[in-house]
């Protein structure tokens, strides 16, 4: 296993009260090397907090993170530095995550400088190699972020993440801000890079179609917990959890005659915090019965490598 997440919890205090927000509440999953794992859910479900915790951008409240079997949950400064050589992140908005006053060359050479990799000449060569890898012309090295289109900026963001030859790349809504014509370019690039470099992806998105396109395995999150987990095929073609089904039905179809009027999922996740102890989805679930409001269902196997957490399975 390249990455194992075991019982991860992240609680945030609510300012001015004794309450906490359980952004991530006991999430476990693992990624084999070369796999592409998609974490999907609506805003506030905790998917980005999982990513940030893995990247050591925030400290978990409980649980463990293992990289190649080694516990990396709490690392010293040096340990974190070593860890980040193997795990890198691509963010949603490449404009906000690139320094506007640095040329692309400086942005891409910085990680190599920090880790003292190679001679100056070798670093320069590596930057050119990275540009080529993400499909940007070498002459772009001297340019600044504002001179690029959104798609080109995201290519720079990807090149930066690849500079240190990481094994794991975490992509947090990495194509969500792009137009579809550009989004498909970047998705294809990500597929090629993964195949060419043997990368492992943890891909975070609210867009189920994008996840299905890119990922072999999928975890569906709702209010801090995984509610369904399995191969892309299982989760999307044979979904078992009522929430996954509702999400899939909510995607607008590209056929105007198919306004099938599916049953709408009422309310919104953030505004329907469940009563303590019950299934977090129960307040919005069409099938919820007495037991659902009292006892939270555990993730249970419903097929080979396919699990869901619902009392009615």
């Amino acid at each position: 296993m390249l990455l194992e997440i075991d019982g991860l919890k992240k609680y945030f205090p609510v300012p001015g009260s004794k309450k906490t927000v359980k952004a991530v509440d006991g999430v476990s999953f693992s990624l084999e090397g070369g796999e592409s794992f998609g974490l999907v859910g609506e805003s506030g479900c905790g998917k980005s907090t999982v990513a940030r915790t893995v990247m050591h951008l925030c400290r978990p409240t409980d649980g463990r993170i293992l990289m190649e079997g080694r516990d990396v949950t709490r690392l010293s400064k040096k340990g974190r530095r070593d860890f980040l050589r193997q795990a890198q992140m691509v963010f949603q908005d490449p404009y906000a995550s690139l320094n506007p006053r640095r040329t692309v060359f400086r942005t891409l050479v910085e990680p190599l400088d920090i880790y003292g990799l190679g001679t100056r000449k070798e670093r320069e060569r590596r930057v050119m190699e990275l540009l080529e890898l993400v499909g940007l012309d070498a002459r772009y090295a001297k340019r600044y972020p504002h001179e690029f289109s959104g798609g080109q900026r995201q290519r720079v963001g990807i090149a930066r993440a690849l500079a240190l030859n990481p094994k794991l790349v975490i992509l947090d809504e990495a194509v969500s801000a792009l137009d579809v014509s550009i989004q498909s370019q970047i998705l294809n690039l990500l597929i090629d890079l993964r195949q060419g470099l043997g990368l492992t992806y943890l891909f975070i998105s609210h867009d189920l179609s994008v996840i299905e396109y890119l990922c072999d395995k999928v975890g569906v999150m709702y209010l801090g917990r995984l509610v369904e987990f399995g191969s892309s095929g299982d989760v999307f073609q044979d979904s078992r959890h009522p929430y996954t089904k509702a999400l899939l039905q909510a995607i607008p179809s590209l056929d105007p005659e198919d306004r099938g009027e599916p049953p709408l999922l009422p309310g919104e996740a953030a505004s329907t915090a469940s009563s303590a102890g019950g299934c977090p989805f129960a307040p919005r679930c069409a099938y919820a019965a007495g037991r659902c409001h009292e006892e939270a269902p555990a993730l249970r196997e419903v097929g080979a490598g396919h699990s869901a957490s619902c009392h009615f399975l």
């Binding site: 289109s149 798609g151 579809v180 014509s181 550009i182 989004q183 498909s184 370019q185 998705l187 294809n188 597929i191 189920l208 179609s209 994008v210 299905e212 396109y213 892309s232 095929g233 999307f236 073609q237 899939l248 995607i251 590209l254």
Partner: peptide, 23 residues
């Protein structure tokens, strides 16, 4: 037509998306 070919859809699995060159 090009736009439609760029849109990922559930159930497309494995089918490579087209894209529109340039911007």
């Amino acid at each position: 037509r090009h736009l439609f070919e760029c849109i990922p859809r559930i159930g497309m699995g494995g089918h490579r998306l087209n894209y529109i060159e340039g911007s």
